[in-house]
Design a protein around this nucleic acid. Structure first.
Ligand SMILES: [Mn+2]
Ligand SMILES: [Mn+2]
Ligand SMILES: [Zn+2]
Ligand SMILES: [Zn+2]
Lengths: 161, 161
DNA sequence: CTTAAAATGAAATTGAAATTCAATTTCAAA
DNA sequence: TTTGAAATTGAATTTCAATTTCATTTTAAG
């Protein structure tokens, strides 16, 4: 008796989770969604749609930009992706695979994006909110400045975070 | 000998400051700019262009939307206005007349926007940045939740902040 | 005044986000 | 397996705020 093993466990598990989520919503599992999900979950960083689409198109040029757009919106609705709009105005997406909440440090020189968590910050936010009679559900916290290397350089190179 | 006095001192002073700033930049002082500035500085809150234009048009319907747009951009460049983009995606402007830095609490129910300052928060931000080798120049900090009234109501009314 | 430069405002353009719609695919039920 | 309603796809189109264009008017220096 032969058994086949899929060694890409992480991916397979994600796909199954996805299929479950999808069907629970009365939606359908499609090749396109699976491919986009796979590529998106196996990537890191904060990418705009054009970048994600480019990556998808490398694997399957038949998949349309609109489908990538709609799938990222779907993933966001399902909690698998998070949409970010930093001060440069671009709409970016990041995977929530790691799951943990975090905020961002953004280098004005090279564009590097560093993630951080700070419990003190979170609790301070709630204290401030309570002080004004608010109940907080989420927040946006971005720190803009220069990273170590850029703080020294005269002409920092632009790269992506 | 007759002297004329303008009793709207605040306004006049702002106007003079503005004329100085304007001419320092090689720009010209115009009736439109003066009117828009006057209306903008004598208003409070976080308004989008359409709202500011509507207010301007009430006083002088001859002033074009484009001029209001350009003047708000100018005021932003001169530091008299600040552009804000909260999570609803709308572009808003607020006067910096008071001058002090502040962050925002935003009610998801009624849209109310409450401003706050917290030195502890500011210093914590710098501590976090230093921890990651960053030098911070500005930040964005918005807390989203429900204000006291909305936290209780079943169907909060939408109003503007 | 005269004149060059700047400003105005209606109209046109831009570009990202969102929608449309005919063709295709999915999947539950037969 | 077949069927067919419902969902999805993707190219094209639309939307809509932000921005630019450009002919005309206004400002202010000389
Ligand atoms: Mn992140
Ligand atoms: Mn404010
Ligand atoms: Zn940097
Ligand atoms: Zn409220």
């Amino acid at each position: 008796m032969k058994l086949k093993f899929n060694f890409k466990k992480g991916k397979t598990m994600e796909s199954n989770q996805f299929k479950t989520l999808i069907s629970e919503e009365g939606l359908k599992s499609t090749r396109q969604r699976a491919e986009i999900l796979d590529i998106f979950l196996n990537s890191t960083g904060h990418k705009n749609l054009a970048e994600i689409y480019a990556q998808v198109a490398k694997t399957n040029p038949k998949i349309g930009y609109t489908t990538v757009y709609r799938t990222l919106k779907l993933l966001t609705r399902l909690g698998l992706a998070a949409q970010r709009k930093f001060a440069d105005g671009e709409t970016r997406y990041e995977s929530t695979a790691e799951g943990t909440h975090h905020d961002h440090l953004i280098c004005l020189g090279c564009g590097k994006i560093v993630e951080f968590e700070d419990d003190g910050l979170e609790s301070l936010q709630h204290r401030i909110a309570r002080r004004h009679g608010f109940k907080i559900f989420h927040h946006r916290m971005e720190l803009y400045g220069y990273c170590g290397p850029c703080a020294h350089k005269k002409t920092p190179l632009r790269r992506k975070g």
